[in-house]
């Protein structure tokens, strides 16, 4: 009896996991040979709650940490590495230094930090399997970001970095949709080639 119930419960757990896996697979992010699941919509939803306030606090308009054109130019194979460094940067340098003025900000920052940690863990696995190679150019780009950040006053730099989360999320969305577009084009091109 216990044996049968154990089988049934394990089957249920497997089914649940499969369902979760299916839903998670809808948010797959293909970073070269590494694949992680990122819920950019949820992250954007959380960030939107504090975005306006954070943007208003950033008065160093002449400094831009994340340049959109630079991020677009990161090679496909090096996105994994770039994202891994960027997330570690946010978790270790930005969120820890961000002085939340309201409890709402603190909660949102915590949520974002946990999400970034989770993604970073997946990327670390890829890195250990040598799926996250980093080229010299990407290292230099990231070093430039760190240099700009360190040039600023710590709290102001943290605010700026949080205010630029828009760019990071947009970049992730772009990767996600670009991959979808490639897959769709593959689907369309397959029937044409007998």
């Amino acid at each position: 009896m216990m044996w049968a119930s154990g089988i049934v419960s394990s089957l249920l757990v497997c089914t649940l996991l499969c369902c979760l896996w299916d839903t998670a697979s809808g948010w797959k992010l293909y970073l070269g040979t590494c694949t992680v699941s990122v819920h950019t919509h949820e992250l954007r939803h959380h960030f939107h709650e504090i975005r306006q306030s954070v943007l208003a606090r950033d008065r160093q308009l002449g400094v831009k940490l994340l340049r959109r054109d630079m991020m677009k130019n990161v090679q496909d194979t090096e996105r994994c590495c770039f994202l891994r460094h960027l997330l570690r940067f946010y978790v270790e340098r930005v969120f820890s230094c961000y002085a939340a003025t309201q409890s709402q900000h603190r909660r949102t920052i915590n949520v974002l930090a946990n999400a970034f940690l989770s993604i970073k863990r997946d990327l670390r696995v890829c890195h250990e399997q040598n799926h996250c190679p980093c080229g010299e150019e990407t290292r230099m780009e990231f070093s430039a970001i760190q240099a700009k950040f360190e040039k600023l006053e710590q709290k102001a730099a943290a605010v700026k970095a949080v205010a630029e989360l828009d760019s990071l999320l947009e970049w992730l969305d772009a990767i996600h949709h670009r991959k979808e577009q490639i897959l769709e084009e593959d689907d369309k091109s397959h029937p044409e080639n007998p």
């Binding site: 160093q60 308009l61 002449g62 400094v63 831009k64 340049r67 040039k151 600023l152």
Partner: peptide, 9 residues
């Protein structure tokens, strides 16, 4: 991000 040349940010 278009910083003044003075580097003041």
């Amino acid at each position: 991000g278009d910083e003044e040349e003075s580097g003041t940010g």
